[in-house]
Nucleic acid binder design. Structure first.
Length: 722
RNA sequence: GCCCGGGUGGCGGAAUGGCAGACGCAACGGACUUAAAAUCCGUCGGUAGUAAUACCGUGCGAGUUCGACUCUCGCCCCGGGCACCA
């Protein structure tokens, strides 16, 4: 074996040889069953943007290193990959360059598969699939119909986030600070009828499930904040001279005696009715102003609080006091009831508003043993304290009165303790072409009808126009749009929208267990064997999108009876991003493919380099060439890795392999120096093992470098002695 | 504004309360070579000193400890998440 090795390290010779052999022998083909414990290892699959770049390389190299390590540890490892291949870039390419989205996507997949293979990753390629193929998306449709029948997929008309650039609705999760997460265009609100998944029904379980997950704390926290649970009381206010009631949600029932005004969101349905003729102009002006504002400006905390008095009054159910009803830009229709009770003494936002419009401030909670003066307050007192000016509750601790007041409201039948979540239902309709068609038809007789399984897949039509404007491109295919009702056979129309691509990735990990299954989205038996995913690796940016959606899907499919577990990913690791000039490396910001490094130094050098350059969980700066202003095609530090690989190669070529145990036996019988060498070998094994376990690949590599350096001194000393 | 994470040589980084700077890059000096590349040997936080060595040094300021990059408190800066969520 050693004799066959070339004298110099030649990755261009070695790597293809082994890669070919792995493919021939099925080295990484996973087979369910056997005595070994299973280990399902997954990295978030790639979008086929064109080229693999160093951000991908980092993710997949970490995954591959640990997957191989687990296999060596005696696990039956499944390590699949594929392509998340529906999405906007393919469609934009179609509009701009007149290429078929399918053709564009497949070309990219072909190229990236080549790059994946050149990197020498140990994937089970037989399990690979592309989500844009009917063989995959038919199961999206199949699952959609099941969610539909279970009442978890529903259609409603509401204000959706509309991206004017992408010409489509977006889910809340895909809006970043009022801007489109993809293209950064400012999001508008549009009233549209859209499909939703009932993820809010799972808010509590999504929180509870955290207890059983071995995930990074910050991701759990991000999800927790995203779900945004708050406990409070929803209760009714009577209106003066009006039979309707005004419902509000508050997390501070203990401050109810301090209410000095009420605020409605400008979109609140009661605004029109309550506004008196004298106040109409002012209220209308405010509503118009808010309506014309972008989501970004509207949601900004910097926005000056503005309001208008409606002329109407509400009556406090606790003490009968009469308070003015305002409309203001700082109350959101989407949360709670779209109306609030305002307590300026104990809520900073209400305080600012009251000061601006000269509304009284009434203190009802005071810090223990201290006096407060409403006129002298410069900020709201939001902490706990002792009740004052609160009738029968005076003198009680505010946290106790919280419960007492809530109980009183419940006893009197005017309110109930409720929980509100910030999480919104997941809007999945997209007015785009390159996605999964929604398997629903609209029949004049039968209404909305889900396609039966035997009519799936519902294929994406190819005779469409890509105008990039207006409604979904699918409407331009007459053959697609006009159909017959599966129930009554009468004329019917199809849904022109496609599904959010996050639906594809919400369950793809299940498909890998049985990628060829023809009878269902997945084979129950194989899913029982392989799932859940034991280790999942991907970017932190998916904390509140993909990772929440995937957990929701798993729970929903569990409830429908398709799965026996309800959490998909046992362990999660977030690799750090690769930046170039401080900006995340991506197709859009100038990505560097690994090709040059592989050609010049080999895949092993590429892999070691990306693992060595920074701790796996932290950001890694790639570096920008000061002359061109673009990221380096070949990084400066690669020389050190190349030197190490060469030193290592020569060492083994000359003296045999320390890492196969030959050194250990050779030095076993030797002098003290030999014993030191043996000790170093074992220390290195221990260090590298521990470092891989804790995802510290940079120090694992450093340990192997030290070992190699020591072998050199040992060999040099040995030669000098003889 | 609130919630996380971080701040260590010229650079990437190491050090799970115990010799700060492992490992690597860059730089510099040397060996080999006609020469270069490659390789090998060495120097490489600051100040003083020929040197041994001494003093200073992990964003800033305090504290706990025999001992602090590490723990606690306050502040500054950088990165990320959330953001009129009632």
């Amino acid at each position: 074996m050693i004799n066959e090795m070339p004298e110099f390290y030649q990755p261009q010779v070695i790597e293809p040889k082994w890669q070919e052999l792995w493919e021939q022998t099925g080295q990484y083909t996973a087979v369910a069953g056997g005595d070994k414990p299973k280990y399902y290892f997954l990295e978030m699959f790639a979008y086929p943007s064109g080229d693999l770049h160093w951000g991908h390389i980092r993710n997949y190299t970490i995954g591959d290193a640990v997957a191989r390590y687990k296999a060596h540890c005696g696990y039956n490892v499944m390590h699949p990959t594929g392509f998340d291949s529906f999405g906007l870039p393919a469609e934009n390419a179609a509009i701009q360059r007149k290429v078929e989205p399918h053709e564009w996507t497949l070309k990219n997949i072909e190229n990236m598969t080549k790059q994946f293979k050149a990197m020498g990753y140990g994937y089970d390629w037989a399990r690979a699939f592309n989500t844009c193929e009917p063989e995959y998306y038919r199961w999206n449709q199949w699952l959609f119909t099941r969610l539909f029948h279970a009442g978890l997929a529903y259609k409603k008309k509401s204000a959706v986030n509309w991206c004017p650039e992408c010409q489509t609705a977006l889910a809340n999760e895909q809006v970043d600070n009022g801007a489109c997460e993809r293209c950064s265009a400012t999001i508008e609100k549009r009233k549209m009828e859209q499909w939703y998944f009932r993820i809010t029904d799972y808010a509590e379980r999504l929180l509870d499930g955290h207890a059983q997950l071995d995930w990074p704390e910050d991701v759990l926290l991000m999800q927790k904040n995203w779900i945004g649970k708050s406990r409070g009381v929803e209760f009714a206010w009577a209106l003066e001279g009006n039979d309707a009631e005004l419902r509000v949600f508050t997390t501070r029932p203990d401050t109810v005696f301090g209410v000095t005004f009420m605020v409605l969101a400008p979109e609140h349905p009661l605004v029109e009715e309550l506004t008196t003729p004298e106040q109409h102009a002012a209220v209308a002006a405010l509503r118009d102003e808010v309506k014309s504002m972008s989501e970004m400006d509207r949601a900004s905390t910097e926005l000056e609080k503005k309001g208008a008095f409606t002329g109407a009054y509400a009556l406090n159910p606790m003490d009968g006091s009469r308070v003015a009803i305002w409309v203001a830009n700082y109350v959101m229709m989407e949360y709670g009831t779209g109306a609030i009770m305002a307590v300026p003494a104990h809520d900073q936002r209400d305080f600012e508003f009251a000061r601006k419009y000269d509304i009284p401030v009434r203190i009802v909670i005071a810090p223990e043993g201290a006096n407060m003066n409403a006129d002298e307050m410069t900020a709201a007192f939001e902490a706990k304290g002792v009740m004052v000016n609160s009738g029968a509750y005076d003198g009680m601790r505010s946290d106790i009165s919280w419960t007492k007041i809530a109980e009183e409201m419940e006893a009197r039948g005017i309110g109930t303790r409720t929980i509100n979540y910030r999480l919104r239902d997941w809007c999945i309709s997209r007015q785009r072409y390159w996605g999964t068609p929604i398997p629903i038809v609209y029949c004049d007789q039968c209404g909305m009808v889900a396609l039966p399984d035997e009519q799936l897949p519902l294929l994406l039509p190819t005779d469409v126009q890509f105008t990039g404007a207006g409604e979904s491109p699918l409407t331009t295919s007459v053959a697609f749009m006009n159909t017959t009702c599966p129930q009554c056979g009468g004329p019917a129309r199809r849904d022109a929208d496609t599904m959010d691509t996050f639906v594809d990735s919400a369950w793809y990990f299940l498909r890998y267990c049985s990628p060829q299954c023809e009878t269902a989205a997945f084979d129950a038996e194989l899913v029982r064997y392989w799932m859940p995913v034991d280790m999942y690796i991907g970017g932190r940016e998916h904390a509140t999108m993909h990772l929440i959606y995937a957990r929701f899907f798993t729970m929903a499919l569990h409830d429908i009876g398709l799965l026996e577990f309800d959490e998909p990913f046992t362990k999660l690791f977030n690799q750090g991003i690769v930046t170039a000039g401080g900006k995340k490396m991506s197709k859009r910001s100038g990505a560097v493919p690994p090709n040059n490094v592989i050609a010049e130094y080999g895949a092993d050098a590429a892999r070691l380099f990306i693992l060595f350059m920074a701790p796996a969980g932290e950001r890694a700066e790639w570096g920008v060439d000061p002359e061109t202003g673009k990221p380096f095609t070949v990084p400066a530090g690669i020389e050190g890795i190349d030197r190490f690989l060469n030193r290592y190669w020569r060492q083994i070529h000359m003296h045999g392999s320390a890492f196969t145990g030959e050194w250990v036996s050779v030095v076993d019988a030797c002098d003290t120096r030999g014993q030191d060498m043996r000790r170093k070998t074992h220390q290195t094994i221990k260090r590298v093992t521990a470092d891989i376990e804790r995802f510290q690949f940079n120090t694992a590599i450093a340990a192997m470098m030290e070992m190699t350096n020591e072998l050199y001194s040992y060999a040099a000393a040995g030669l000098a002695a003889t």
